[in-house]
Design a protein around this nucleic acid. Sequence first.
DNA 1: TGTTATCCTATTGTTTTACTATGATTTATT
DNA 2: AATAAATCATAGTAAAACAATAGGATAACA
Lengths: 142, 142
Amino acid sequence: MRISTKGRYALRLMLDIAMQEADKPISIKDIAKRQMISEKYLEQIISILNKAGYVKSIRGAQGGYVLRRKPQEYTVGMILRTTEGSLAPVECVGEEACECDRMADCVTQKIWQKINDAVNDVVDHITLEDLLNWQKEKQDEQ
Amino acid sequence: MRISTKGRYALRLMLDIAMQEADKPISIKDIAKRQMISEKYLEQIISILNKAGYVKSIRGAQGGYVLRRKPQEYTVGMILRTTEGSLAPVECVGEEACECDRMADCVTQKIWQKINDAVNDVVDHITLEDLLNWQKEKQDEQ
DNA sequence: TGTTATCCTATTGTTTTACTATGATTTATT
DNA sequence: AATAAATCATAGTAAAACAATAGGATAACA
């Protein structure tokens, strides 16, 4: 039931950009340095976010990435799902739910559905702005 | 965020035994046939359940397995956690939560904690008896 | 004493994960 | 115009996890 580095890095990536001055392009190099994540790996992850239209890329020297929308318009669920794929605990629930032979008399399916709903309820109600606020609170504590 | 076959098979395994006549040993061979799961693989899984004290094994001819407790005394969470290991979405939350360098200013940790709580809340409130009842309902429908 | 079952451990093939590597393309700066 | 700094695209790879298979030892009923 683990969330992979892809999804976790994607969140830190988006939060990192959100924390910088808006409209100023942030380079992968800088993010990688701050977040201590491999540059090349971040490149791949941000490319997913780019194709999803979550960030805008600016090529060439002094280029980088900026957020396409305001932080409150991104949910954690959106970011995790685009990078991780479905968050469903099994294939047979969630967005592209498949059917299996045993579907008719399968009672465990009900469990997976409940888990899926519970997880989505959490991630779809936390926005990037929430993370920003939590970050600020943490910094004020210190 | 997937639950592996180990946990899913374990659940079907326990439910299969619970559905048969209590106190009558059920053999792996029979379970495997009914559930269409590899005998040898089931053997490994039930051995985990056996070591956890969830089933009692009866060796020799006419042997098999029986439940040690009543169906209402097993939660789905118990079964999944013993077979799957922790259900936590990341290492740094859950039972044996580790600490990492970035712990102090890590805001994503809060997300993982919430997911963990939500998942556990679901699986710890469904018992094997609930599954049994759902199964009966399904059969009555047909 | 044979048959039926569990018990135990090792091995294997596949897939996923988490990167690393190489090189092309674009653009601001000098 | 040349250079440097950045993104873009795709291929490769080592390690771990997953999902079994395989083989034989042990136990008990008949």
